[in-house]
């Protein structure tokens, strides 16, 4: 029973981080109709920046205050997004979508090496934050408190995003632009500004995902590309452009991955991709997507 609870918590942990990455990816696609192949690297930027900031401050500040550094990665990722959208993506909206995939693929290659250039080939760690929280016992097993914190942050982020998109004026404009960009523009919405805001918000979420998981996993090269493929699976299952879909997809992938690793490790990845393929075949727009 304890083991089952721990598996379940781990699944939620995966799902929280995956939701943050895939939710950003989905938000960007929903509003801008761009599949950002560099999105995983934005997540990696969040992880690296937080790990770097924590590493710099370690020892000179009390451990508890270091938790205030977690959002640094999210802010860095958001800033990067705010710079990238107007410079690289904006010239491409009028062109065929193949070019958008290509330019974000180019961006993926560039960001991958920029991380190596800035922080070197060795992994960065922020594990002091992970260890400082200790662990608590569930039945006869123990479970790291930090993991629970990540799950809580993931839940809060999902709720905040939902409120943001469905309960604020900005959310209305965002959804209006996503449904009909020309009409929104004709009604006086500054579409360029909405685009840069949506892209920044999407990057912020990915960066936050990286920032909160880095104390547990560390930051390594290639983490972005790995995360991107999983985020793809999530949004394909849930529906490209749908935030509820990203949440559902993240939960499904989290559960399948956790139990897959525990019970059928050889085909765990293949099962995930097959799941995505089957969903695409039956409902190409995803489980909760609108075609």
């Amino acid at each position: 029973m304890d083991v089952l609870i721990i598996h379940f918590l781990n699944a939620l942990l995966y799902a929280s981080v995956l939701f943050l990455i895939a939710g950003g990816l989905s938000l960007i696609y929903g509003v801008m109709r761009i599949v950002n192949l560099a999105h995983g690297n934005i997540y990696a930027v969040g992880a690296y920046t937080t790990a770097w900031a924590v590493g710099r401050m370690l020892g000179s500040a009390p451990a508890i205050t270091l938790y205030a550094l977690l959002p640094v990665g999210a802010v860095a990722a958001a800033a990067l997004g705010a710079v990238l959208e107007p410079t690289l993506l904006r010239p491409l909206y009028k062109r065929a979508e193949e070019y958008q995939l290509l330019i974000t693929f180019g961006l993926l290659l560039i960001l991958e090496d920029l991380l190596r250039l800035i922080w070197g080939p060795y992994p960065l760690s922020a594990s002091s934050l992970y260890e400082a929280l200790g662990s608590l016992s569930i039945g006869e097993s123990i479970y790291p408190t930090y993991n629970l914190a990540v799950i809580v942050v993931g839940g809060i982020a999902a709720a905040a995003l939902w409120g943001f998109v469905y309960k604020t004026k900005f959310g209305v404009i965002l959804r209006a632009t996503s449904q009909n960009m020309r009409m929104a523009s004709a009604l006086g919405v500054n579409v360029n500004r909405v685009y840069v805001q949506a892209f920044t918000l999407g990057c912020f979420m990915a960066g936050l995902g990286g920032a909160i998981i880095v104390p547990q996993q560390g930051a390594v090269l290639g983490m972005g590309v790995d995360a991107l493929v999983l985020a793809f699976v999530v949004v394909v299952i849930g529906g490209l452009g749908s935030l509820e879909g990203a949440l559902l997809g993240a939960l499904m992938v989290g559960v399948v991955r956790e139990f897959g690793i525990a019970f059928f490790p050889e085909i765990e990845l293949a099962v995930l991709y097959l799941m995505a393929s089957i969903v695409l075949l039956i409902r190409p727009a995803g489980l909760l997507g609108r075609a």
């Binding site: 979508e97 490790p265 050889e266 990845l269 293949a270 995505a276 190409p284």
Partner: peptide, 25 residues
């Protein structure tokens, strides 16, 4: 059966099935 972005993502997802099989088996 699909075109545009869905074709791209579906081909990607299917190719990754092969990759994960080659990787794990």
């Amino acid at each position: 059966r699909y075109t545009r972005i869905f074709f791209g993502i579906l081909t990607l997802a299917l190719s990754q099935v092969l990759w994960s099989l080659a990787f794990k088996f």
